[in-house]
Design a protein around this nucleic acid. Structure first.
Lengths: 210, 210
DNA sequence: ACTACTAGTAAACACCCGCTGACTTATGCG
DNA sequence: CGCATAAGTCAGCGGGTGTTTACTAGTAGT
């Protein structure tokens, strides 16, 4: 805009005059930023509502870079979902089965320092209409519920019960993050601990009633 | 689909040649049909994804009638949500509190003859961005959860627990109707009865553990 | 310093969306 | 019948969407 093309700052052109770690032209960085912004907006507002211009503007880059880096809006969504799925899978495998209730509570209550955990799960509930992303979504939900089913007794209804618990968790996340129903939306991890524990025990515990 | 009122049959133009009670030009009927189709599509595919032309085509009428009868697409959505809310409120008031688990199971399992019950609840999870519809949504969720809270003991956490049960129910409906996760999606009312009963008892029953 | 290459930009394209105004057709009433 | 009115249709408008093409500007290799 106002930066004339003339030699304004005659600093030594050899090395970087900036303090440190400032690369104004970093493809990986902008790519990652695009991914982060898109994930947040897709999770919060859904696929169809979110526009590529909004994403690009918030990321501070040009719209065309979305098509360049991710082929299309749908490609960007797929990349977001893929990243979320691998992260969910990773810390799902790290969770010991006997700590299931506590882990679930933590996921629901968004205890992560950057608050990005429930965002990933919210993204699982968003759809772009593409079949490939639908398969990814179903795949991770299936494997999580299968792992949860292993925590309880070997009933033939164990998987069904695990999926009900998973549905409950996602429902709570949706209610808190997207609908904002009070007092559920404002409940802390401590508030949620006992009820969620009751829920998990009633459906998945080894010594459940029925 | 096949009943086009085109000039195919040159019957006597004086009176209605059709058997009986068939009025091709009925404002209330087309209005109701528009509402039914819109509710189904909004619930299944969301607000932004659904186009007014799709709705009009499926209803078999012209697009302009949506603006005529409901002012705008958002007005149509609001009408759909209002109808769903009153219906939900009505049969929520008819449900005795001690039958809560059974009633919830029935709502989840879609036992209605026309299969429209979970559709209404699914609509509660869709948003158009308008504040007025947001208030309607939150209002019905709040009153339902308050009524459910009255079923259990008078804890200060009763409302929170009731909202968790409600979130679980909506999560299950979403998982069954929109995601299609098996075996949950294919579970019958009988399959769901015991797990849902356990869930409700663990969170809302008078003699619960914690 | 010159050049090849890549990150990033600007502008426009083609399309689809919700909506509208003028028009056509059927119904009800005198 | 004649006609006023409501029900329904048609074609097109602005506007916003995702995407592309042509361009500029930094950066690394020699």
């Amino acid at each position: 805009m106002g930066t004339t093309p003339g030699p304004v700052m005659p600093i030594t052109p050899g090395r970087a005059p900036l303090p440190a770690a400032r690369r104004p032209r970093d493809a990986e960085r902008t790519r990652a930023q695009l991914l982060a912004v898109a994930t947040a907006r897709f999770a919060r507002n859904g696929y169809a509502t979110t526009t590529v211009r909004d994403i690009a503007d918030e990321a501070g880059v040009n719209v065309a870079l979305i098509s360049r880096y991710f082929t299309s809006k749908e490609g960007l969504f797929e990349a977001c979902l893929a990243a979320a799925v691998t992260e969910i899978r990773r810390d799902s495998d790290d969770t010991p089965l006997d700590r299931l209730a506590a882990a679930l509570t933590r996921r629901i209550a968004c205890p992560d320092r950057d608050g990005r955990l429930p965002e990933r799960f919210l993204l699982l509930l968003r759809t772009s209409g593409d079949q490939h992303t639908e398969d990814m979504r179903l795949g991770v939900l299936r494997s999580i519920s299968e792992r949860m089913a292993a925590a309880g007794p070997g009933d033939n209804s164990a998987l069904l019960r695990a999926q009900i618990v998973l549905s409950a968790a996602l429902g709570i996340i949706l209610m808190r993050g997207s609908l904002g129903l009070q007092p559920l939306a404002g409940a802390t991890e401590q508030d949620l601990a006992a009820p969620v524990s009751d829920l998990v025990n009633a459906l998945c515990a080894k010594g459940r009633t029925s």
